[in-house]
Simulated assay, not measured.
Amino acid sequence: MPYELQELAAISGMPGLYRLVRAARHGVLVESLDEKATRTLAPARNKVSLLSEISIYTQDPEQTVPLTDIFERIYQQHGTTAPVTAKSSEGELTEFMAGIVPDYDRDRVYLSDIKKVANWFGIVSKHRPYQEAAAPEAPAADETAPAEVAPAPKAKRKSAKADAEPAANEPLSTGGVIGAPDDAPEAPGNPEATVPAKKSRKKAE
C-alpha cells in the first residue's frame, strides 16, 4: 500500500482530512491532517468516510478502483503533486481522471468527485510518506532455495562420509556448493577398485 489510508477520513461539514484518534462518547476524536495537527471532536451526526473504503466507479458495474490504487497511479504518473486542482477546468479534470482510470464511469463520477481526489491526494502526499512495495522480492528468493537444496539427498545415498560435509553447509549452500562434496566421493572411489583386485588374487590362488 503506497499511502497508508486506514486511519484517514473525510468528515462531512469539516474541511480537509483527519486522522481518527479514538471513539468518544458523543462522536469521534480526530486530528487534522495538516501542520497544526489540531485535535477536535467530530460529532456523531457527521458522516465519517474512511479513505481506505472509497472507490471510483468504472464502466463495469461490478468493478470499482479503490482510492489507494488511484493514489498509487497518480504518484507513478505525476509524483507527489497532482496536475489539477479544484480550480482546474472541466476538460483538465476529466482528462486527468481518464489518464488515471481510462474506463471510469463518466455518468457516476462527477467533477466534484475528481476535485476531491486531487485535493485529498495533495493533502495525503504532503503529510504521509510514500511506501514502495518491495516485499515480493523476498519470497522469490525463498522459492528457489528448496530447489537448490533438493540434490542433497543424492549425496547422502553415496556414502556416510559425504553426509557429514553437506549437512554442515546446507543452510548456506547452492547447487554448486552441494555438488562439491558429490565430487569428493569419486576420488575415494578409486581405492574401491582395489577391492575387486584382492578378490581376484584369492581366486588366482
Score class of each variant (00 low, 15 high):
Ala187Pro: 04
Leu50Ala: 11
Lys199His: 05
Leu33Met: 12
Leu8His: 13
Glu137Trp: 14
Ala133Gly: 00
Ala82Cys: 14
Ala187Ser: 11
Pro102Asn: 07
Ser173Leu: 12
Lys154Ser: 06
Ala138Ser: 06
Thr94Tyr: 08
Arg201Asn: 10
Pro151Lys: 10
Pro43His: 08
Glu31Lys: 12
Gly179Met: 06
Leu67Trp: 03
Val21Ala: 08
Leu5Val: 07
Lys161Glu: 14
Asp103Met: 06
Tyr3Arg: 01
Pro166Asp: 12
Pro83Gly: 02
Gln6Leu: 03
Asp107Gly: 04
Asp107Ile: 12
Tyr104Ala: 07
Leu17Val: 06
Arg108Asp: 09
Glu72Asp: 15
Ile178Ser: 02
Thr144Ala: 14
Ala187Arg: 08
Tyr104His: 11
Asp163Ser: 14
Tyr18Pro: 01
Glu95Lys: 14
Ala118Lys: 07
Ala86Gly: 09
Arg157Asn: 05
Pro171Trp: 02
Pro181Arg: 08
Asp113Lys: 11
Ala82Thr: 08
Ala147Asn: 08
Ala44Asp: 02
Thr81Tyr: 02
Ala138Tyr: 11
Ser52Arg: 10
Ala135Phe: 14
Leu67Gly: 03
Glu186Tyr: 14
Glu7Ser: 14
Asn190Ala: 09
Leu29Tyr: 00
His78Glu: 06
Ala147Gln: 00
Asp60Ile: 03
Asn169Lys: 11
Thr81Ile: 12
Thr144Cys: 08
Lys115Asn: 01
Ala98Met: 06
Glu170Pro: 00
Ala152Glu: 11
Arg73Lys: 09
Asp113Cys: 04
Glu72Ile: 03
Pro102Met: 04
Ala134Tyr: 03
Pro171Lys: 10
Gly175Arg: 13
Lys161Met: 03
Pro181Tyr: 11
Pro136Ser: 13
Arg39Tyr: 05
Thr80Arg: 15
Ala23Glu: 15
Glu31Pro: 00
Ser112Glu: 14
Val21Lys: 13
Ala168His: 12
Leu51Phe: 04
Glu62Asp: 12
Ile178Leu: 15
Gln63Trp: 05
Pro83Ser: 02
Asp105Arg: 06
Glu192Pro: 01
Glu192Trp: 08
Val195Pro: 03
Ile11Lys: 07
His127Met: 01
Arg73Cys: 00
Ser55Leu: 00
Glu72Asn: 09
Ile70Arg: 02
Glu95Trp: 09
Ala184Gly: 01
Met14His: 07
Glu35Met: 12
Pro136Phe: 10
Gly91Pro: 02
Gly175Ala: 13
Gly27Arg: 04
Ala140Trp: 00
Asn119Gly: 11
Arg108Tyr: 10
Glu137Phe: 15
Asn190Cys: 03
Arg106Ile: 13
Gln131Leu: 10
Ser88Arg: 00
Val109Ser: 07
Glu143Lys: 11
Ile70Pro: 05
Pro153Leu: 09
Ala160Trp: 04
Arg128Pro: 05
Gln131His: 06
Lys156Leu: 15
Val65Gly: 03
Gly16Asp: 05
Thr144Glu: 12
Pro191Glu: 05
Pro61Val: 10
Gln76Ser: 14
Ala134Trp: 02
Leu93His: 02
Ile100Met: 07
Asp142Tyr: 05
Gly16Lys: 10
Ile70Gln: 01
Glu90Tyr: 08
Gly122Cys: 10
Glu148Tyr: 00
Pro191Thr: 08
Glu192Arg: 10
Ala42Asn: 03
Val177Ser: 14
Ser173Val: 00
Ala145Tyr: 15
Ser112Ala: 15
Arg201Pro: 04
Tyr130Asp: 04
Val195Lys: 13
Val117Ala: 04
